[in-house]
Structure formats: C-alpha cells, structure tokens
Amino acid sequence: MNDDDGWRERQRRAVRAHAEADARQRAAEQARAAELVADFAVEATRRGLRPDRLVATSYDGRRRYRTPVTGWYVDRARTRAVDTEGRFYLLTVPSSLRSRLLGSRPAPSMPPLVVGAGGRDGESLPLATLLALRLAEGDNWR
C-alpha cells in the first residue's frame, strides 16, 4: 500500500465517521422533537383546547381539502399541526381531483426542532417556542 492508498483510506474512514455522527445527531434531534410534539398533545388535551378537523392546502394555496385528522394547528398559516395522538403534520399537499372529491390523507411527518430553518424568508422558530406560544393562546388562537 502506498501513501496515496493510505491517505484515501483515512479519508474514507473520516467521511464515514462524520456521516455516522451526523446521523446520530439527526436521530437525537428527531426524537427530541417528537417528544415535544407528543407532550404538546397531552398538554393541549389537559388544558381542554378543542381540537379541529384539520384541512390541508394545496402547494399553490388555491385549494383546501378535508382530512380525517383531528388536532390543533400550531402556526397561523395552518400548514403545521399536531393530531390528538401526538403526531406532527405538514398540511400542504399536491393538488388532485381525487383529493377534491374524497379529501386528502396527509401522512404524519418528523417534526423539525427548528421550524422554518433554511426557508427563504429567513424566519425560523424553535419548535418548543412555537408549541408553547400555541398553548399560551389556547382557544383564543382561532
């Protein structure tokens, strides 16, 4: 093995170690965010916040679709929500005739620890803060 081969192998190991550390960090952040969302659902129920039948919006914002999901919107745009089971939803979906007729069935998604991070508007907010604000406003938020 020459020096170039040894250097390449060290580089591969370093890249692999970095990727594994990054994956562990992402998994820990996702677990923490999921815990925050589940705690929010418990606390919203305890406080008597009335859950709504959630509505999804098309990506272009022109259409609204019924969903079978019941929960609480957590942002004013009504694009993020938590269901009564403590799962997080992004409520933007593709436009479709099927959804217009039968409604949309959004799937739960992994919540981010920072909502809006990397967005074009530059506005981001920690998930814990967003959920705390929503709880503080209670049913007056509607």
Rank of each mutant, 00 (worst) to 15 (best):
2 N>Q: 01
2 N>G: 03
3 D>F: 00
4 D>P: 09
5 D>L: 07
7 W>Y: 06
9 E>W: 11
11 Q>K: 12
11 Q>P: 11
15 V>K: 14
18 H>V: 06
19 A>V: 04
20 E>R: 06
21 A>K: 11
24 R>Q: 14
24 R>K: 13
25 Q>G: 00
26 R>G: 02
28 A>W: 14
29 E>P: 08
29 E>I: 03
31 A>Y: 05
33 A>P: 14
33 A>I: 09
35 E>A: 05
35 E>C: 02
36 L>T: 09
37 V>L: 05
39 D>M: 03
40 F>P: 14
41 A>I: 07
41 A>T: 09
42 V>C: 11
44 A>E: 15
49 L>I: 03
54 L>K: 06
55 V>T: 13
57 T>W: 04
58 S>I: 10
61 G>H: 11
63 R>L: 05
66 R>I: 04
67 T>C: 01
69 V>H: 07
70 T>I: 08
74 V>M: 09
74 V>Y: 13
77 A>N: 11
79 T>S: 10
80 R>V: 05
80 R>G: 03
82 V>F: 07
83 D>E: 14
83 D>K: 10
83 D>T: 14
87 R>M: 01
89 Y>Q: 10
91 L>G: 02
91 L>W: 10
92 T>G: 05
92 T>Y: 08
93 V>K: 10
94 P>M: 00
94 P>H: 00
97 L>R: 10
97 L>I: 12
101 L>A: 05
101 L>C: 06
102 L>F: 12
106 P>E: 12
107 A>I: 06
107 A>E: 15
107 A>L: 10
109 S>Q: 12
109 S>R: 11
110 M>Q: 13
110 M>S: 09
111 P>N: 06
112 P>W: 01
114 V>Y: 02
116 G>Q: 08
117 A>P: 13
117 A>L: 09
118 G>E: 10
118 G>N: 06
121 D>V: 00
127 L>T: 09
133 L>G: 14
136 A>E: 13
140 N>F: 13
140 N>Y: 12
141 W>K: 07
142 R>S: 00
142 R>D: 04
142 R>G: 03
